[in-house]
Design a protein around this nucleic acid. Structure first.
Length: 495
DNA sequence: AGTCCCTACG
């Protein structure tokens, strides 16, 4: 039999015109593809329900293609494997792979393995994923970063998996896989997520040594991870930033915000201020959030002169302070004992169209209480309610601490009872203070009454309350044994 | 994304 395709194009044309015998239709390429399509359609139609008869999927594949007298296609195998993975039929995947490896001759497309590796990963079958990755070459497939990345995703999902990464990378090298930027990215993401920023930096350096340029997103990610670390020094962060800038990294607003937040949390408000100066030098206008954080940092450091400068500067830059900015500023005024100025800010804010919120009032209430101006504190609390600003547990705690601190234990008791009736609270250290105070004034009976009420309302007394009551029980004849057992029993059930 | 309070035990 002469195959038309084996002949030169010119003679092919000659034969078509003058041939004496028909070319076998079954040997033409298009017919083979047609039959393979038919077989694939028949496989899809006659596929047994995988939930009940997964073992019949492979025989159906073989049968369908045999019927059409063609070899099975990679797509048909992918269909069978996808059907099995959709229904989590682990045990029936192995025979399909075995046949794909030993019987079939075609080059298996890599995406089939990437899909399977991901599937094993989702079901925590890390070892299956690794085994398949190592086997890929036996399927006449040249693996690339596609399958490697699929495996890296799986391994990066757990700490145990992450430990296997170095071995996999060495093996990938032997398998001829070239690491892509995406592969590095997966590793850096994973390391940052578990707080191993130092290793993430190593990987980034390794990436750049491999000829990849500086990646802005990776830089930002590492910087933000450094800023989330509790133990990293501010110097480290600035050092890293400087190094990256030398390599061409241009930090954006978000990067600088992260650095400023980090500095302020470390109590380095003046360093944070320097970051703002650096931003301006680079032509980036810090936003009101950056300024609010810096203002907060500078006030925490007690540099109120700088704080005023910072506030003026943001106004000069045309930024509009919002309630966060005002709250920070008012807090600064209160720390300088300028409570009157702080109270005046409330009306200024309202004139400027910025409504004071719960936090604004809490700051001022605390300042008034600290100054012993409890009557004005009560007035302000009333005022805030009138202005439609609700109170919260903090507000009550501030008031209770104020009443107690002023030495008005009677009023503190009344207030505490009100709180227990009105406020949803599980624990409040101020309650302990009241009980402690009562015991030390020889008022253990009142203390006991409040303690009972706390337990009644499901509020847990702290160690300080229990200790005070136990110590005063000796000198207080009215506390009987039954009272104690009656109290201790429900206490056991407390959260 | 940033403000008040501080979320107690080893």
């Amino acid at each position: 039999m002469v195959r038309a395709s084996a002949l030169k194009p010119s003679s092919k044309f000659f034969l078509r015109k003058h041939r004496k015998w028909p070319v076998s239709t079954y040997n033409t390429r298009w017919h083979r593809i047609f039959n393979q399509n038919q077989a694939f359609q028949s496989l899809k139609k006659s596929s047994p329900p995988p939930e009940n008869q997964p073992h019949l999927l492979l025989p159906t594949l073989v049968y369908s293609f045999n019927t059409y007298n063609v070899d099975p296609t990679p797509e048909a195998y992918h269909f069978v494997l996808k059907t099995l993975t959709k229904t989590s039929q682990f045990d029936h995947i192995a025979p399909v792979l075995r046949r794909l490896e030993t019987v079939e001759k075609f080059d298996t497309p890599e995406h089939i393995f990437a899909h399977l590796i991901g599937f094993y990963g989702r079901w925590n079958r890390t070892q299956d994923a690794i085994d398949l990755f190592y086997r890929i070459l036996r399927f006449r497939c040249v693996p690339s970063a596609l399958s490697l990345n699929a495996l890296l995703y799986v391994l990066c999902g757990s700490c145990e998996g992450l430990k296997l990464v170095p071995e996999i990378l060495l093996r990938s090298h032997v398998m001829g896989i070239r690491l892509e930027e995406s592969s590095f990215r997966i590793l850096i993401d994973a390391l940052c997520a578990i707080g191993k920023v130092g290793y993430a930096i190593d990987i980034m350096n390794c990436m750049m040594n491999n000829g990849y340029g500086l990646n802005v997103k990776i830089c930002s990610l590492i910087l933000s991870s450094m800023c989330e670390q509790k133990d990293s020094e501010g110097v480290d962060v600035m050092e890293f930033l400087g190094e990256m800038q030398k390599l061409g990294f241009c930090p954006g607003m978000m990067d600088y915000s992260n650095v400023i937040r980090f500095m302020v949390k470390q109590g380095r408000g003046l360093d944070a201020l320097n970051v703002v100066i650096k931003m301006k030098g680079e032509g980036i206008k810090p936003d009101v959030i950056c300024y609010t954080m810096v203002l907060h940092g500078v006030i925490t450091e007690g540099d109120f002169k700088k704080a005023d400068q910072v506030f003026d500067e943001l106004l000069v830059l045309g930024l509009v302070p919002d309630v966060y900015t005002y709250n920070v500023y008012i807090n600064g005024l209160c720390k300088q004992n300028k409570v009157e100025s702080g109270l005046m800010m409330i009306s200024s804010m309202e004139e400027l169209g910025c409504k004071p919120n719960l936090i604004t009032y809490n700051i001022l209430l605390k300042a008034l209480c600290n100054n012993g101006e409890l009557r004005r504190a009560r007035e302000l609390m009333r005022e805030m309610t009138l202005n439609g600003v609700g109170v919260n547990l903090q507000t009550h705690r501030i008031m209770l601490d104020g009443l107690f601190g002023k030495g008005d234990i009677e009023e503190a008791c009344v207030f505490m009872e009100e709180m227990l009736d009105k406020v949803l609270v599980r624990f409040c250290s101020s309650f302990d203070e009241v009980i402690y105070g009562l015991c030390h004034r020889g008022l253990a009976c009142k203390a006991m009454e409040l303690l009972k009420k706390m337990i009644d309302k499901n509020v847990a007394p702290g160690a300080k309350a229990w200790e005070a009551l136990l110590l005063s029980s000796g000198s207080e004849p009215s506390l009987e044994e039954t009272t104690w057992t009656g109290l201790v029993e429900p206490m056991v059930a407390l959260p």
